[in-house]
């Protein structure tokens, strides 16, 4: 049981960033805006966290508050790119896929450009001294098995525990959520009853940027402790997969992201066992992606359909 608990615990480390980013994707796509740019927004978040924490450390000495400042900076950096995304796709009615691709290109380029300027030519930021440590939750972490698996983790994990039900509540139990979803399903009808389509789409995209930034910051502050070109390498796209896999639903997204995280944790985990010697490591790396394909291909018949109006700019004249 102890090893299984450890597996879950290390799964959570890999999953949390995906959960944040994919949750962001839920808000954006539910409001009717595809967000291929999650990868870029995560990159921005990882960069913001690394830089802000670095300055906190050099200016104020290493304090325990510096990773929190980093986390907030990550959110802010994600928001900057989300704003660009929203302006282009909602206000200028640009193609959402294209803008997402642009965000990915720009975020990587701008952050590395700044890193090279700030660190005088180096391709990565200095290693942070103060990052998040594991916080065992009093009482809960003493529960056999569950405590070790779920309640002995980084603070960001607990934020994810809170954000998933909160997102679900927001989306499905509040007027705000109803409006956001209606804008994504049928903007024309929503507009007719007086819902401001532009406003809700901006909100959807901005939330996605904030959450993706949070996800990127999480990776810097719990896994890598610095930022380089490879800090975010494909997690944003996996988050998109988790988003579709989880059917645009916060709990589904949590499950899907957990699944991807577990597949990642599994490959480190399996090396502990004798039998894994006979499996080429590349196949362990492939495992999560193959499993996803099999599951999705098996799910034929059931509707795997996103919000109806996602992908199209809203044009009142075509109502």
């Amino acid at each position: 049981m102890g090893t299984l608990a450890d597996l879950i615990s290390s799964t959570l480390v890999f999953s949390v960033a995906l959960i944040f980013a994919a949750l962001g994707g839920v808000f954006s796509e539910r409001s009717g805006v595809f967000n291929i740019g999650l990868e870029g927004m995560m990159t921005a978040g990882a960069f913001g966290a690394a830089i802000a924490s670095f300055y906190m450390e050099t200016d104020g000495g290493a304090t325990t508050s510096s990773p929190w400042v980093g986390l907030i900076a990550g959110v802010a950096c994600g928001l900057v790119f989300a704003l660009l995304h929203a302006y282009a796709t909602v206000s200028l009615k640009a193609d959402q896929t294209i803008v997402g691709v642009v965000i990915n290109i720009l975020a990587v380029a701008v952050t590395l450009y700044l890193v090279k300027i700030i660190f005088e030519g180096a391709g990565d930021t200095a290693q942070l001294q103060q990052v998040f440590a594991k916080w065992p939750i009093p009482l809960l972490s003493d529960i056999p098995f569950l405590g070790r698996a779920f309640f002995n983790s980084y603070p960001t994990t607990y934020i994810a525990y809170i954000l998933v039900p909160v997102s679900s509540y927001l989306l499905f139990r509040t007027p705000f959520g109803l409006r956001l979803r209606s804008v994504g399903e049928h903007p024309g009808a929503a507009d007719t009853v007086g819902i401001n389509v532009t406003k809700y789409r901006y909100i959807g995209v901005l939330i996605s940027g904030a959450l993706a930034g949070l996800g990127g910051a999480t990776i810097t502050l719990t896994t890598t402790s610095n930022f380089s070109h490879s800090t975010i390498s494909g997690q944003g796209f996996i988050a998109i997969a988790a988003l579709i896999f989880g059917r645009w639903n916060p709990y589904g997204v949590f499950g899907a992201a957990f699944f991807f995280g577990m597949a990642q944790a599994l490959r480190n985990f399996l090396t502990r066992f004798e039998f894994s010697q006979s499996i080429p490591t590349e196949f362990l790396y492939m495992l999560p992606y193959i499993l996803t394909l099999i599951v999705l291909a098996g799910a034929v018949g059931k509707s795997v359909r996103g919000p109806a109006a996602a992908g199209e700019a809203y044009d009142p004249s075509k109502r």
């Binding site: 997969a241 579709i244 590349e282 196949f283 492939m286 992606y289 193959i290 999705l296 034929v300 795997v304």
Partner: peptide, 21 residues
């Protein structure tokens, strides 16, 4: 066409599979 899998997600998965394969 036959399994109703969104091409974006299957292609992203296949990119990684291709790399490791």
């Amino acid at each position: 066409a036959y399994r109703g899998v969104n091409e974006v997600i299957s292609a992203i998965m296949l990119n990684w599979i291709a790399l490791y394969l």
